[in-house]
């Protein structure tokens, strides 16, 4: 038996194990196995490996939050009876930047789920983040609240020099305001929010279809503090302190890109 012959027949043995052969082809494989000691054990090895993978390797089912998020987004893309005439034509979605036309994920129309999810997110964060910080609940709740239509922005501007003065007279501190449009995190505006028993600044950034809320307020306890990350399927939270200010970034953006965003803030 030549090496080349066996190399070829081994793909056939594999195909046999995978149930891909016609009866005639399977008979040819079987005849080869009867006469070739080198190949005889191959079917058993392949089946053992296949069995191990199916038995032991992780099959990752879609998390509940993903099911819900997708249903919510599909509902958002479907025509609203009240504004049927304003619906974009389906073909527009196939344009190169189709995703820009997609609505932001909202929890509209799924209030029970939204509430449950917010609660789950908060529970997870309390576990993840250091004890003594009761804030994650408030921060994530604030973010989710802000995603409701009409709640996200008090001032709409992509210009940090418009946003920063807007806070004057509305806050008893001057939050730093920075735009990272060039780096792919454009500032879209800001609003006032209420956290930790005080009014705080919320800067709003956009990353593709994801919204990033960055809450900022004076941190009396820590002048500088390293970033800490926490997450719960869908919401990532990063907090740090710098120059006497506390920063909390919240988003459903993936952790890596949110960390990129925070790194931009940390850079001088």
């Amino acid at each position: 038996m030549t090496g080349d012959g066996c190399a070829e027949i081994r793909l056939m043995v594999q195909a046999d194990v995978d149930g891909e052969l016609t009866p005639a082809e399977a008979a040819r494989v079987s005849a080869h196995l009867d006469g070739c000691a080198g190949c005889a054990s191959l079917p058993a090895q392949l089946m053992a490996l296949s069995g191990s993978i199916r038995r032991e390797a992780l099959y990752y089912p879609a998390p509940d939050a993903l099911h819900a998020a997708i249903r919510s987004r599909i509902a958002g893309a479907a025509p609203q009876p009240a504004e049927g005439a304003a619906m974009p034509d389906m073909n527009q979605y196939t344009a190169a930047r189709w995703w820009k036309r997609l609505p932001r994920p909202t929890w509209r129309g799924s209030a029970p789920f939204g509430a449950g999810f917010a609660l789950a997110a908060c529970l997870a964060l309390v576990v993840m983040l250091p004890r003594g910080d009761g804030l994650p609940d408030d921060v994530v709740a604030g973010h989710i609240r802000a995603l409701q239509p009409g709640h996200l922005l008090d001032v709409t501007s992509t210009d940090q020099h418009t946003v920063k003065p807007w806070f004057d007279g509305r806050l008893d501190f001057a939050p730093p305001v920075r735009d990272f449009k060039a780096e792919g995190f454009p500032l879209t505006g800001a609003r006032l929010d209420y956290l930790a028993g005080r009014t705080v600044a919320a800067l709003v950034y956009q990353r593709r279809q994801h919204v990033i809320d960055l809450f900022v307020w004076p941190d009396g306890r820590h002048f500088d503090r390293s970033p800490v990350v926490g997450d719960h399927s869908g919401y990532n939270v990063l907090r740090w302190s710098r120059d006497g200010m506390a920063f909390w970034a919240v988003s459903d953006l993936n952790a890596q890109e949110l960390a990129d965003f925070v790194r931009l803030w940390q850079a001088e």
């Binding site: 099959y59 990752y60 089912p61 879609a62 998390p63 939050a65 993903l66 099911h67 998020a69 997708i70 987004r73 599909i74 893309a77 979605y93 189709w98 995703w99 997609l102 994920p105 997450d231 399927s233 869908g234 990532n236 993936n254 952790a255 890596q256």
Partner: peptide, 30 residues
């Protein structure tokens, strides 16, 4: 969706990114 997420999870090796991928893929599929 389970099949979609399992494949995405094995391809990108990250749960959060896999969820982003599946969301984008489903909207694209729509």
């Amino acid at each position: 969706l389970d099949a979609a997420y399992n494949l995405a999870r094995w391809l990108v090796g990250d749960a959060t990114l896999a969820q982003d991928v599946v969301q984008d893929a489903v909207m694209r599929a729509l």
